[in-house]
Structure formats: C-alpha cells, structure tokens
Design a protein around this nucleic acid. Structure first.
Lengths: 213, 213
DNA sequence: ATTTATCTTGACCGTTTGGTCAGGTTAAAA
DNA sequence: TTTTAACCTGACCAAACGGTCAAGATAAAT
C-alpha cells in the first residue's frame, strides 16, 4: 500500500495507531473491570485486543500507564454525568436528571463503574488525589446547593452527603452488581423495559424520600 | 510443655490448630478484600498472618480452598443479618430493622462486604450457585412479603426488587466505598456519631420514599 | 530509489506466583 | 520411656508474570 492510497501526511500510520490504541484500551477496560489492577494481566489484555503482548507495551509503556489512562477515561465520563447537576433551580428536576444520567451511565458503561469500584475498594491508591480535589470539590458544591434547598424549605432536612452516597451506591449497583441482578432475574440480564422501570422506581423513591414528591 | 499442662485429650494441639486457622483466615479476609481472588497472593496472606507460607498450605490445601472457606463465612454473616426481615407484621419496623442490621454489618465486617463485591463484580464465578439458590429464595420470599404489604395498602406501589437493590447498594456502600467516604469526610473515617446519623438518614429516606412515614 | 521513521513480534529475562516436600520439632498416646 | 501422629518450615519447582529487545516489515519522506 502506497502513501497515496491513504489520505496525505501519514494519515494511514495515524489511523493504525488510533485503531490499535482503541483496541487495547477496550480490552484493558474489560480486563481491569473483571480483575482490578493487580489481578489483571497484560497477556490477557493482549489476547482480547488480538495483538501480541509486546505490542501492548509498544503503545503503553507499562501496565500502570495503561491503567492510569483508563482511569482518566472513566473520570471524564463521570464528570460528564455530573454536569447534569448544574441547573439547580428546580430541586426535583435537577435530582431526577442527575439520577437518570447516572443510571444511564451504569447501563452504557458498566466496565468503567466496575473499575472505579475496584479502585476504591482497594483503597484508591491511584486516585485519592483526584477524589480529594476534583471530585470532593464537585460534591461539596452540590452539598451547598442541597443545603440551600433545605434552607428554602423546598425539601426535607436530610444529611446531603447521605443522600448523595445513596444516589452513588444505588445507580452504580446496576453496573457493579449486574451479574447478581441478572441471577435474581432468572439468569436474564435486565431488559430495556425492566431497566427503565427500575430507573423510574429509583427516582421516585429517592425524590419522595427527601420530600420532593 | 507436657500433655498434662494443657487440658486432656489433645486439647493443646486442637487449640494450636484453631489459633492458626483463625489467624490465617483473618489475614486472608483482609487480603482478598483488597485484591479479590486473583489479585491476592498466598505470600501476602502468610506475611500478615505471621506464619510461613508453607504453613498456610498446611492448613488450607489451595488458595481456592481458602477463598471458598472465607466466602462461606461471609455468606453465613449475610444470612444472619437477613433473618431480621422475619418479623413481617409491621412494614416500617421490619424494613427499619433490616436496613439497620445491614448498616451495622457493613460497619462491623467491611472486609466481608468487599470480598462479596469483588466476587460479584468479577461475575460470581464461585458463588453463582449459592446466589441462584439460597439468596434468590430468600429474596423472592421477601418480595412476596413486600407485595403483600402493597396489596394491603400499607405502603406505596414500588417494584420490590428495585427497593431491595437500593437497600443492598446503599448499606454495602458504607463498607465497600468507605475509603471514598473517608476522603470526602476530610480524610477522617466516619465517627460513630456520623455513622449513626448516616444510618438514620438512610432509614428515613427509604421509609418515606416507599410511603412508610 | 533510497532513506527514515514508525510499526510489529518471537524470543527472551529476571521476578513473582501457587504449590510441594523432605526433614525437623513438638505433643499426645502407649 | 518409647512410639506415633500432628505440626512446622526452609528450600525448592514449574508456570506465569511484567517488561525488554533485536531484527524484520511497512509506509512516509526525500
């Protein structure tokens, strides 16, 4: 294949790089989600990505570098869902939007949620900085909003952190524990209908639970 | 030390066995909780248990045998907390009792909860039988109770599974994600006071959320 | 056509892994 | 006291681990 056949300026090489990196990242996300950082192996990642193991190390110098890259991706998506909390005029609408966004993220990217779970369970060795700065700032500012709603008598007086933890836990449960839910559902993954129903139930219980229904 | 010095009939040997097994089990619980089955190493377990690695294999033939034993323990404790759901006359009292029992279990035995989380995240390879029989039976019978409460107009019409998943997720979050909670709490573990407060908030939000307040 | 830069990979290396074992110590039984 | 059964452990092993590298293949630039 000549240079002319592809786009100009080394577009083919760039495409190869992008393709391979994407393949490796997708495989790594799967393997890290199943086994966490320590339990995952580069050989297994290579196998799933369908590239020789040496090629994994050509694109990502170390297992840790690959892991950190995956964590960045996971955090980016988390922040994206978080932004739903911005429109803070109507408490019920805002909370509903946030819960629904987090539920949808659990459905769309369960592996990311599982990687995060591994990371925290193990003690957040790689991400404690990110949590104590970026995530904590985000959370604290939402707590302020919730406290304002409470002060304005728009909702019940609840501990905002407890509420947020409940939302974190419940929404992520549908990703992290989907295998358990599947078994309870007679060994069938939740259908789109069942998931939508679950989402509505979660929203309703929480909104009513804090006096927003 | 002679046989006479200890109780009769080989009590000393039995005591040694019990002591060592307990030490190894405690260490294994810690290590499996941090790294899951695959990521945990027998060398690390031996180190924490303060016995030579060969001794770990003297008491537990393989890493998998040790892991299964730990899983049994975890399940036993889970079933113990589950029994709180038995007194099913008063919905609010029953649910409150169950939620509080699960919260207390997360506080008292966080490692067990984390091991369970690892196990499910990975796909419940060792425990799918236990879940699809024992746990599912337990859950389905509680769902019947909740549906009866709903039919009797004692609480809102909610999807019982969604409600139970919310309780699982939220209570276990205080064990599995305690490191994250700690960071949000300015790098301090929740005090007994804060935990009691969180527990009460969780109970209040859920009970009110399903129309039991 | 030749050079250069990037991509590819089988073979390899030192270390760590789960697990074994021979030979020892200790306590219970005879 | 002697025998027996259980406990203990340093040393070891094959396999799997993360990572390296030299040598070749491919495509872009000259």
């Amino acid at each position: 294949m000549t240079a002319r056949k592809s786009g100009q300026n080394g577009a083919h090489k760039a495409a190869i790089r992008q393709e391979n990196e994407a393949q490796i990242l997708a495989a790594a996300e799967l393997v890290f989600a199943d086994y966490g950082f320590k339990g995952a192996t580069t050989a297994r990642i290579a196998e799933i990505a369908k590239v020789p193991k040496a090629n994994v190390h050509y694109y990502f110098s170390t297992k840790e570098a690959l892991y950190r890259r995956i964590m960045e991706d996971v955090c980016d998506h988390w922040l994206q869902a978080a932004s739903t909390f911005d429109n803070s005029t109507n408490p019920a609408e805002t909370l509903r939007g946030y819960i629904e966004a987090k539920m949808d993220l659990s459905r769309a990217r369960p592996h990311g949620s599982r990687i995060w779970a591994h990371e925290i369970i193990r003690g957040a060795k790689f991400s404690s900085d990110y949590i104590s700065t970026t995530v904590k700032s985000w959370l604290d500012s939402r707590v302020v909003v919730i406290n304002r709603w409470i002060a304005e008598g728009k909702m019940d007086k609840v501990e905002p952190y407890s509420l947020m933890y409940m939302i974190f836990a419940t929404t992520q449960h549908y990703a992290d524990f989907s295998r358990q839910i599947e078994i309870f559902n007679n060994n069938n993954p939740l259908s789109d209908e069942q998931f939508t129903d679950a989402k509505e139930n979660v929203v309703r219980i929480i909104l009513k639970g804090v006096g927003l229904a």
